[in-house]
Every structure is written in C-alpha cells, then in structure tokens.
Simulated scan of single mutants.
Amino acid sequence: MSKRLSARSARLSVLLAASLLFAATPALPAPVSVVDDAGHTVTLAQPARRVLTLSPHTTELVFAAGGGDRIVGTVTYSDYPPAARDIPRVGDNKAFDLERIAAMKPDLAVVWRHGNAQGQLAVLAKLGIPVFYSDPRRLDQLPLTLERLGMLVGTADSAHRAATAYRQRLAALRQTYAGRPPVVVFYQVWEQPLMTLNGEHMVSDVMAACGGRNLFAAEALLVPTVSTEAVVAGNPEAIVTASMGATQASRPLVDLQHWKRWSGMTAVQRNNLFTIDGDLINRQGPRILDATEILCKQLDTARSRRPAGTR
C-alpha cells in the first residue's frame, strides 16, 4: 500500500514540476493577420514594434489605435497629436529617404494607398517591410481601420475603445442631422483649375451625414475638374472649401470670394460660403468627425437662411 502511495506521490511531483515549468515559460507572440484597404492580407509573425507612418493621416490613425509609441519614422506635416512632431522624418508623401528607412529596420509601414509614391512603396516591399495600405472612403471604415491597426501593433483593447467611441459619436451626428432637409453643396478643392470631389470621396460621406448632397457626386473621377458654368447651373445652396492647416506654407489659401460675381446663385445670395480646417476634413483620421460636426452646423446655418416656409 505504501509503495502505491509512494509511486502516486512521485507521479504527482513530476506533473507539478512540469506544470510549474510550463507556467514559467513565456508565451510566444502569436501571429497577427488583417486585410487592408487595398484588399491585401497583411500578416506579421508578432505585433509590430517599429512602425513607419508615411502620411499625416496614417500617423493619426496609429496614435488613435494606441500605437503612437511604436512609430519610429514619419513624414512631413505629421503634426497631430503633438507627440508626433518629435518623430524623425523620412521624407514627405511623395518621396522617402529609403536608406534612412532601411536603417530604422521597421517591421510595419502604414501608407496612404493613393497618396504615396507607388514606385517607392514597391521598394518597401522589396526591402521586406510589410505594408498596410490605408485609403478609407467612408466614415464607417475608420473604426475598422483602427481595430485592424490595433491588432497589428498589439494594442487591440485601446483600438477597440477608440473605435467604439468613434462609432457612438458618428451615430449621434447622423441621428441629429442626416434626416434634415437636404442642402445641395459644392465642395471646392481648388480654384485654378476648378476642382471638386465625387461621391466616392469621404468628404461626400461627411456631407451625407449632415443631410448634405454633393453637387458632383455622379462624376466618374474621384477629384474631377469642373467648369464654373456647371457650378452656376447646378445652383448649390452652399459652397464649402478647406482652409489651410499644416500645409499652409506650401500653397495659398483657397478663396471663395470670387463666387460673389455670380450673385444669382443661392449660395451667394444667402452668404453660404463656408470653410473648414483642412487638417480636419482632408485627413482620413478620427478628427474627420470634428469636421463633420462643423459642416453639420454650417449646413444648419444654410437651412436657417431659407425663406420662411421653406426650411
């Protein structure tokens, strides 16, 4: 009997020792895999610790997802949040210092799908740097992007909280404004040549959240060139443009005052010529909801200027 107890005790001791050894062994990081805005699957052997953000909006996205302390290099005009200003620069949207990038040994690059130079992005791939392409076109895509980036940089909980807060704020804005009487909007990107945005651009989705209707939503090109005559014929109730933010040193302010020559247009008659900070409305990051709230209030101002009985 004592021999059986002794043998049993020995087995229990071995099992206990094995369990303690297993508990003391650190768990290996698990691979992570997500799909980016180009439809590519991005797979990392473990969450990234050295990240490049190669546009201002991707910098904002990674910070919002909780991974700002993992960014080792970024580009000109990546100035938000303030901590981003201290990150080393590796070029701008169009041209990167590839030697410096290689020396940084990044394990992930988050890039702007249609804004970064495609040839240089191909070089990143040849260097073996995994690339996540960001180019959200709808407001509802942004929280998904936050969650995907959170998975890639190991901050899934923080990213999920940020995504949840974003979704709640967006839902509240839509509930308040989207069903209000529509306002036809001409969004001016540039004056010479006269450029706007079509219905596939995120700014058009911002308009829709506010009960706005993009005058040129049906255009084929994402950023089409239009004629002054087409704008006048479309008779928008409001004209909106972006004021300069971080990029103000590189190009002059877009001015809407020239439209006052067409005094018959509703937007001019009612002085519905509005501007929004370009850093808010032109960057596909969480601050787009700040721009949305501003635009919603501007379109409400346009509604308030309608003749009595037509509001």
Rank of each mutant, 00 (worst) to 15 (best):
A102K: 11
Q141G: 05
L152P: 10
L124Q: 06
I101C: 09
G154A: 03
G154R: 07
F132V: 10
G119R: 12
T145A: 13
M104N: 05
Q141T: 12
V123L: 13
F96T: 00
D97F: 00
L127T: 11
N116E: 05
Q141F: 10
R138E: 14
P106I: 04
R85Q: 15
R137M: 14
G150S: 09
L127H: 11
L127R: 07
Q118K: 13
Q118V: 10
R148C: 06
L127M: 15
L149Y: 01
R148A: 14
P106L: 00
Q118W: 00
P136L: 06
I101W: 05
V110C: 05
R148S: 12
P143Y: 09
A122V: 10
R100N: 12
L98I: 12
G128C: 09
R85T: 12
A84N: 11
V131K: 01
I129E: 01
A83E: 15
A95Q: 11
G150F: 08
E147M: 14
Q118L: 08
R148G: 05
L152R: 08
L142I: 15
K94L: 14
A102C: 06
N116A: 04
M104K: 04
D92W: 01
A122R: 12
V111E: 02
D140Q: 15
P82V: 08
L149F: 04
E99P: 08
R148N: 15
L124F: 07
L98M: 15
G154D: 08
E147N: 11
D140K: 14
M151F: 06
N116L: 07
L152Q: 10
D92Q: 01
W112R: 01
R100W: 08
F132A: 12
P88T: 10
Y133C: 00
M151K: 15
V131Y: 06
A83N: 08
H114N: 11
R148P: 09
E147P: 04
L142E: 07
P130R: 02
E99Y: 02
V153P: 01
G128L: 06
D107L: 04
P130F: 05
E99T: 13
T145W: 02
R148E: 11
L142G: 03
R85W: 04
K94P: 00
H114C: 00
R113P: 00
A102V: 09
R113L: 12
A122T: 14
R89A: 05
R148Y: 12
Y133V: 03
A117R: 13
M104T: 11
L146D: 01
I129M: 09
D86F: 08
K94T: 13
G91H: 03
F96G: 00
A84K: 09
N93M: 13
L98Q: 08
V123Q: 15
V123G: 03
M151W: 06
R137S: 14
A84H: 10
K126I: 09
